[in-house]
Design a protein around this nucleic acid. Structure first.
Lengths: 358, 358
DNA sequence: ATGAAAGCGCTAACAA
DNA sequence: TTGTTAGCGCTTTCAT
């Protein structure tokens, strides 16, 4: 409802814009490498060498050139550099939606390392329920990015094909996809989920459910759900409770009634924002947490510590995942050796107040 | 502390990478506009026209070219396009840190409109307490972005200078800066804060404090703080309580003790994440909200509804601000007329449970 | 409606 | 150590 209002509001504003059009005069860049060369009495090649830190330049020459660069406020045109060198020092970062902290914390790790290595980031989001026909991927590929960090849980065939044709390195960050051409940095999702489930079991909970965003995503299909079924089998539990397509705070809040009527007494959720919804719904229904109902979130952002009672969660090293993924990408982009293309980082289960056992 | 751990962890990982280097073989793009032209028996110019939707092409010719494009999987090189046309269909988005939802919700508005108009986004973050010497700004300018959305609360002289030399449109989103060369989309911060303060006053609170992130930011210095002082003057209040540099949940949590000992009974905070910290600290200190202590957040993200009691807050139309800013930017980039370069959007004060008066 | 040709600003052989 | 030159892949006049 609020979303609808938002959108109505904006369309009104957009409609009210004046649509007059002026002629656009194209103009060349004011000061180019050629100007610097002329002013410094050297060739373009020498200026280029100075700009790129090539050591084959006499110190006096270098200083002379730098002085001119400074005086003219010369700045290299990265587009021209990119065309000539076939390297753009730009990486594509593909995320599944912008409005979640999980992405933000990963992105910080990526950004810090990217900045350290002087790469710029082209950010592209593929919203969850939008069918990606590969266009957005193709669009960043056309921009000649040197590599891509991919954070979505699925990849369309078109996108896969586009990546393979582009022949640039791709590293998955905080996700796993059924494609071993890509590097990856993640945690052991299968093990982490199993530990969370055992924790709930040890607390005496019997009807434990799994709540996921997208059943078909490989990370769920291939790890979380497998882990859950293994857990059920090992404990001789017959009934399986998997709730799918739970994405937002509201989804979580609204799901609780169903969980309750299904007799569920503990859940592992994919996202802490949905866990927050469940917690609040439980409290509003006078269900006591953790005595009557336990929750563990498989993901932990700032939200996990704001919710009261504070969420027990699997704490992934989000910043590290982003940073290590980006570091791996810089190596792949420079064709340096990478010892291990599939890195598994450690995680912790932080026991707070949505579980009994401390 | 957690941050320190994070960083230690990552440095270990980075250090363990193998550093072997291979020679990098540069290769030309596989299929270019030239290949298409040859295969279709037309000139490059014609292919270019087809690619760019120029209508001056016979239908048969167009179809023939499109067939070849399809067969060869031709994709235009955006870098070459950018160099030749001096337009990159890329915009820079500058944000003050990645890890807050306030940015994320604005970014979604920006991203949606950018996608609609086929612009890519180069995302750059300027972390709060880092002195920006203009390098990150210059770096995106060198990439020849066609325009910039700027979301930080301050701008260094170097950055200002770089923008003015680059001569591209800049639109401020959700912020105000002391520079009228830029377009802007925001709400009336002065009025909104005043209304929040009056609300607290009407509830009988007498010692009302203002909590800001950065006293020197123009948006605070020129609007919020002015508004606060006017409020004090109008009510004949002598003592001014402004708390500066409160940025995180923990900052808010830790600040509460001081607020309490200073005799504060109500606050307006800049960010809802710090408000959340204050709320939790108050509850942990057995101070009842809103009876003994009231809080209004001047910003409202998803966090405002997760905190219990739910935050009373000034709800800015974040999505709209981003979307309208981006829409304005598209117009400026195409040299179209823009009726009003400084747009003020409506806001609401959402009364929830951290204030008495409903 | 189509083609020829001159750049866009830079890098990177290759020479000197 | 420095300069010459030929592109990188595309757009855009200007002819035709």
């Amino acid at each position: 409802m609020q979303n609808i209002n938002n959108h109505l509001q904006i369309y009104c504003f957009l409609a009210n814009f004046n649509l007059g059009i002026e002629v656009f005069k194209m103009q060349k860049q004011d000061v180019t490498i050629y100007d610097v060369a002329r002013e410094a009495n050297v060739s373009m090649a020498t200026v280029s060498r100075v700009v790129n830190g090539n050591t084959n330049v006499r110190k006096e020459t270098r200083d002379k050139v730098l002085a001119v660069i400074d005086r003219l406020h010369y700045q290299p045109n990265a587009v021209a550099q990119g065309l000539a060198s076939k390297k753009t020092t730009t990486v594509g970062v593909v995320v599944p939606g912008l409005t979640n902290l999980h992405f933000a914390e990963l992105a910080k790790g990526i950004d810090d390392i990217a900045t350290m290595y002087k790469y710029n980031i082209i950010l592209t989001s593929i919203e969850n329920n939008v069918i990606d026909n590969g266009n957005v991927i193709q669009s960043i590929l056309n921009k000649q990015v040197d590599g891509v960090i991919y954070m979505c849980n699925t990849m369309s065939p078109k996108a896969t094909e586009a990546f393979s044709r582009a022949n640039i390195p791709v590293v998955l960050a905080g996700t796993i996809i059924d494609n071993d051409h890509f590097g990856s940095v993640a945690i052991d999702y299968k093990e982490a989920d199993r530990k969370a489930l055992e924790l709930l079991w040890k607390d005496g909970k019997k009807n434990i459910a799994l709540i996921v965003d997208d059943k078909e995503a490989y990370i769920n299909r291939g790890f979380r759900i497998k882990s859950y079924r293994q857990f059920l089998a090992d404990h001789g539990i017959k009934s399986e409770y998997i709730y799918d397509n739970i994405l937002t705070f509201e989804d979580g809040y609204n799901l609780f009634a169903k969980l309750y009527s299904d007799g569920i007494d503990a859940v592992v959720t994919t996202k802490d924002i949905t866990a927050a919804g469940i917690v609040n719904a439980a409290l509003d229904s006078q269900v006591s947490i953790p005595e009557q109902f336990e929750i563990i979130s498989a993901t932990s952002t700032n939200i996990a510590k704001i919710v009261r009672p504070q969420l027990t969660s699997i704490q992934q090293p989000l910043y590290d995942i982003g940073a290590v993924a980006m570091r791996m990408l810089t190596k792949l982009m420079k064709n340096e050796d990478v010892a291990e293309k599939n890195i598994v980082l450690p995680y912790q289960i932080l026991k707070h107040n949505t579980t009994l056992n401390k």
